[in-house]
């Protein structure tokens, strides 16, 4: 009775994996057909495409469950794969065999609005200056993610430190910091960005600075709230009773306990800022053409271009969507894992 059991289970897993592979292939086939066909109207094509992708994801889930014997969060891992792909491409962009992304003079010799053709030298087509859309999407990722990461870095370090100090010192410092961060929160973010955008020159550095202003108040609040709860814990008093000074208490006792929740907010902030940067560039007050970012690439679709050449908008739009979605997945996971309430530290 005991011997056949593992064999049966193995059979179950094999058939699950086979079924998963079949569903995956069917889903990919459906999506691929919907993407290329001209037979049905656009709306139906989009619905079929979405259905195909969902089907493929379901199939992939079963395939992995069959192969590994446990549940796998396929959407999360697909998101991570996308992030690795985008970050990797952005990082190695100058080394990749990509087309011309910003030299509009050289673009004169290229066809404009070439349709996407995976076999050609412009896999995702060209824009109205004859610049390669794939290359622009990769270089756009470089700027977009660089700006977002820089802004989050500034915001986390400055906001985290200010919040920690004000939560630890309390008193007047805390009150002043509270007033300042509330004042910053009270200004509508888009108006603040437009105002800053018209004052500062549109470079990566100044856009990052402007965006970091958006993250600082919430970082201050989070770090401050966490510091207050940590500072009341007995181990801080115990460290004080062993002769630790303020700086040491902050660095060795409070900081390690505050850094995790702050970092998990930072991951979520990255996706918010990628969108914010794209909005700014879309409005024309962010990074300026011909240097590509996803925001100003989408803006190229304005005034009727998108209707005739949808890929101009679809390529950066999908990149933006997937990146934000993946960062959100990562942030959610991080918060679940590092939330002091659920981690029971």
């Amino acid at each position: 009775m005991l011997a056949p059991e593992p064999v049966r289970r193995r059979d179950g897993r094999t058939s699950l994996a086979l079924a998963g592979a079949a569903i995956l292939v069917a889903g990919l086939g459906l999506a691929g057909w919907a993407f290329t066909t001209d037979v049905v109207v656009t709306f139906v094509r989009m619905v079929l495409l979405a259905a195909g992708i969902l089907l493929a994801i379901t199939g992939l889930g079963r395939l992995f469950r069959g192969l590994l014997g446990r549940k796998v969060d396929v959407v999360f891992w697909l998101g991570m794969a996308w992030l690795v792909l985008v970050l990797g491409a952005a990082l190695c962009a100058p080394l990749l065999p990509l087309g011309n992304h910003d030299d509009s003079v050289a673009g004169l010799t290229e066809p404009i609005f070439a349709r996407p053709d995976l076999g050609s030298s412009h896999p995702f087509g060209t824009n109205n200056y004859g610049l390669d859309v794939l290359s622009r999407a990769v270089y756009g990722a470089r700027t977009s993610i660089l700006v977002a990461l820089l802004a989050v870095l500034i915001g986390t370090v400055v906001g985290g430190l200010v919040g920690m100090v004000s939560g630890f010192v309390r008193g007047t410092t805390d009150r002043v910091v509270g007033i300042l961060s509330n004042a910053l929160l009270a200004v509508p973010p888009l108006i603040l960005l437009i105002a800053l955008g018209s004052v500062l020159e549109p470079s990566v550095r100044s856009i990052a600075f402007a965006l970091s202003l958006l993250t600082i108040p919430s970082m201050v609040r989070l770090a401050r709230a966490n510091t207050i709860t940590v500072a009341e814990r007995e181990f801080v008093l115990a460290a004080r009773a062993l002769g630790a000074g303020r700086v040491r208490l902050l660095r060795r006792e409070v900081l390690p306990n505050v850094v995790l929740p702050v970092l998990s907010l930072a991951v979520v902030m990255i996706s918010v800022l990628v969108v914010a940067e794209a909005s700014l560039s879309f409005l024309g007050i962010g990074i300026e053409q011909p240097e590509p970012t996803w925001g100003n690439m989408i803006a190229e679709g304005q005034s009727g271009v998108m209707e005739k050449h949808p890929f101009i908008v679809v390529v950066p739009g999908v990149c933006l969507f997937l990146t934000v979605f993946s960062f959100n997945l990562l942030g959610e996971k991080a918060q679940k894992r590092w939330d002091p309430r659920s981690a029971k530290l």
């Binding site: 007995e234 181990f235 009773a241 062993l242 002769g243 306990n257 530290l345």
Partner: peptide, 27 residues
């Protein structure tokens, strides 16, 4: 305050009530 801190540890030690909270969980 600085001199008093030098007392804490070498001169006076303190044991607290709850060992669950008087050790830093991340150290």
């Amino acid at each position: 305050p600085g001199q008093r801190r030098q007392l804490w540890g070498p001169e006076i030690g303190m044991v607290f009530q709850d060992p669950m909270t008087s050790l830093n969980p991340v150290k």
